[in-house]
Each structure stands twice: as structure tokens, then as C-alpha cells.
Amino acid sequence: MTALEAKDLVKDFHVRVGLRRINLRAVNGVSFTLTPGRTVALVGESGSGKSTIARMIARLEKPSAGSIRVTANDREVPSKHYRNHVQMVFQDPFASLNPFHTIAHHLARPLKLHGRPHGHDEVIKLLARVSLPADMAHRRPHELSGGQRQRVAIARALAPGAKVVVADEPVSMLDVSIRLGVLNLLARLQREEQLAVLYITHDLATARHFSDDILVLYKGRVVERGPADDVILNPQHPYTKILASAAPNPDARGRLLDIDPADVEEAGSAPSYDHYTDELSQ
């Protein structure tokens, strides 16, 4: 059973240079399926196209090619009900809540838009689902801590009754001591409500522990995919190996000086692993 199937997604951005238009391919033929009750992690560095994929799934960007199919109860969901089924949690909880509106507004609106009861009781029920007290409802975003805001953002994504949730770096802007709380909340909701989650991150460690499967993205392409532990503990692709070796690891004190610079990075330039791309395009 699948909840969402993305097939051969391509996204081109047009950049004007002088009088010419240049095509920048941000995402290049990415396919994956999301299953209820399971989490897929998209791992990559900035510029890898992971956020563009998230925005395409959330219908904030139109794919240049490829298809996204959402199924519920084994039937394809028609386009106009798409947003009832697919929702998104944004990276920065300080930016994703409108400073002008109360928390209740943020939760009641999606309830109303998707034809559900949207009274005060429903808002409080939603807050309870993300372990927030009822008196949050009439507060404004600035009165909440980062972690609380992100919980509200999760509640907003749940409001329409979505079964597919795209979480775009949901904890990277939060203080470390509250990250786990938010991730654990997402994990609990996912288990209890059989959500299909697409977890976008640059952090290999949380990707490994939080998700079932991992897709490693490099320059818009999937370079490696597989069960989380396999990808992280036994990476096959050179790029994944570099990523894994670059992540901080207190157990490996003193290894910093052992790595040959040329392996990781050409001095002074942006990471250059173009030879891997060449390999990929063959």
C-alpha cells in the first residue's frame, strides 16, 4: 500500500544570464514512494535539491516533468483534494507562523478550508495531539518558544487530516535540547496515525534514527538509497561515504588531521565532487 508515489521528478529553474536563459536542473529524475506508517529521509547538503522536492510534493512548485500520485484507500486522490492529504511542516518555526495571527487562527483556518468542524474545541483537540495546553490557542507566535511553535506547525499540518506529511528540516532551527522532543512527537504521531512522512534533512544521525529508509541526494539526483542502517553504517557510494565521515563523531577524536584534504574538498573552493556526477551520469 502506498500513500504517495513520486515518479521521475524533474525541476528546472530558468536563470537569466545576459540575454540568454539558462536552465538549472535542481532536481533530476527522482522517484520514491511513501507508505503509511513509514518515514523516508531525503538527505543532502544545501543545493542538493532536497527542499525543492519537498516544495513540489507540497505543491508549492510545479514539477517540470514527472508525476506525483496520491492514493487513499487504494484510490487516486483527485487534484482538488490534494491538500487534504498532503501537508508540510516548514524548517523555521519563527517564519512559518504569521506574527500577526493567533495560534487559534493558524489551526482553525485549515480545519475550515478542508470542511471540518473548526470551533474552539477542535482547535484545543489539535493542540492536545501535539502535547500543547489549551491556553496556547489565543496566544500569538512570539509568545511561544521555538519548540512550541514547531508543535503548532505540526498541528497545522495535521488539521486537514493529512496522511502524508513533508517535514522540511523540522528541527534544524531549534535548540538541540528540544530537537528530540519534536522528532519524538512526529514519530509518535506517525505511528499512532499511520502517517507517511517524508523527512528532509542534512543530518545523517537523525536521518538514521528517525527514518526507515534513506535517499541520499547529490546535485538533484539520488545517489544511494536503502534501509536507514545500511546506508549510514555501510555506505556504498563515495559521496555518502564522504558525508558520513564528515559528520561529527566524538568517538573518533583526533581523526580530523588524518583525513587527506584532497579527499574531502579542494582547498578553498566549494565542495567539488564533480567526478561523482560524471560517474552518475553514465
Binding site: 507508505t35 505511528r191 526507515d212
Partner: peptide, 23 residues
Amino acid sequence: LDSFPSLTGERGAFVRETSGSPL
């Protein structure tokens, strides 16, 4: 320290359990 899950070690404070079938 607990908040940073180890890349190669145990799950630490993560409560998540795996479920369902593989990809």
C-alpha cells in the same frame, strides 16, 4: 549529549520503533 544521536551507535533518547515493511 543525549540530544545528539550518535551516527553509528545506539539510538539514545529516540523512542521511535521501526514498523511496516521495507522499501
